[in-house]
Measured scan of single mutants.
Amino acid sequence: TIDEIIKALEQAVKDNKPIQVGNYTVTSADEAEKLAKKLKKEY
């Protein structure tokens, strides 16, 4: 679900690790936030 994706992003940001979500690779908190907002609009 979208919530699980967002939790995974938040965890990756805390661990400061890049995370791959679908076609996106998120490497920073800023990118994670942008991706989360984008995904919320889509779903």
Rank of each mutant, 00 (worst) to 15 (best):
A8D: 04
K38H: 11
K38A: 11
N23F: 07
I6K: 01
E33D: 12
A8Y: 07
K37N: 15
S28L: 03
V13Q: 08
N16S: 07
A29R: 05
K41R: 07
E4W: 13
E42C: 15
N16E: 06
L9P: 00
E10T: 06
G22E: 06
T1C: 15
L35V: 05
V13H: 05
Q20A: 10
L35P: 00
E4F: 08
S28M: 01
L35Y: 02
Q11E: 10
Q20Y: 04
D15Q: 07
D15C: 14
Y24A: 05
N16I: 03
K37P: 01
E4K: 06
K14E: 07
K41T: 13
E31V: 03
V21C: 12
K40V: 06
I5H: 01
L35R: 00
I6D: 00
A32D: 00
D15A: 10
N16M: 09
K17T: 12
K7G: 05
K14V: 11
A8T: 07
T1E: 12
L9M: 05
K41E: 15
K7D: 06
L9I: 09
E10I: 11
T25S: 11
Y43I: 12
D30Y: 11
K14R: 13
Y24L: 09
T25I: 14
G22P: 02
E33K: 10
N23P: 15
L35T: 02
N16W: 14
D15G: 05
I5T: 01
K38M: 10
K7W: 13
V21W: 07
D3W: 15
K34Q: 12
D30H: 10
L9F: 01
I5G: 00
Q20H: 13
S28V: 04
E31A: 04
T1L: 11
D3A: 14
A12D: 00
K17Y: 15
V21A: 02
A36F: 10
L39K: 00
K37D: 15
N23W: 08
T27D: 13
Q20V: 13
N23C: 09
N23T: 08
K14Y: 09
E33L: 14
V21Q: 00
T25R: 07
K14L: 13
D30Q: 12
N16Q: 12
E31K: 00
N16G: 15
E10W: 13
E4T: 09
K41D: 14
Q20P: 03
V13N: 05
I5W: 11
K38T: 08
A12V: 12
K17R: 12
E10A: 06
E33R: 10
K37T: 14
K7L: 12
V26P: 03
I6G: 00
V26T: 05
E33M: 11
D30F: 11
K34W: 13
I6H: 01
K37R: 10
L39A: 01
I2Y: 10
I6A: 01
K37M: 14
Y43D: 05
A29F: 05
V26H: 00
I19E: 00
N16A: 09
N23R: 07
A36H: 05
V21D: 01
S28Y: 04
K40L: 13
K17F: 15
S28I: 02
L39V: 03
D15L: 11
N23M: 12
A29S: 11
D3S: 09
K34T: 11
I2D: 02
A12S: 06
N16P: 04
Q11W: 03
D30W: 14
E10G: 04
E31T: 02
V13A: 14
K41C: 15
K17I: 11
L9V: 04
S28E: 03
D30G: 09
K14S: 05
A8I: 13
K17E: 04
K37F: 07
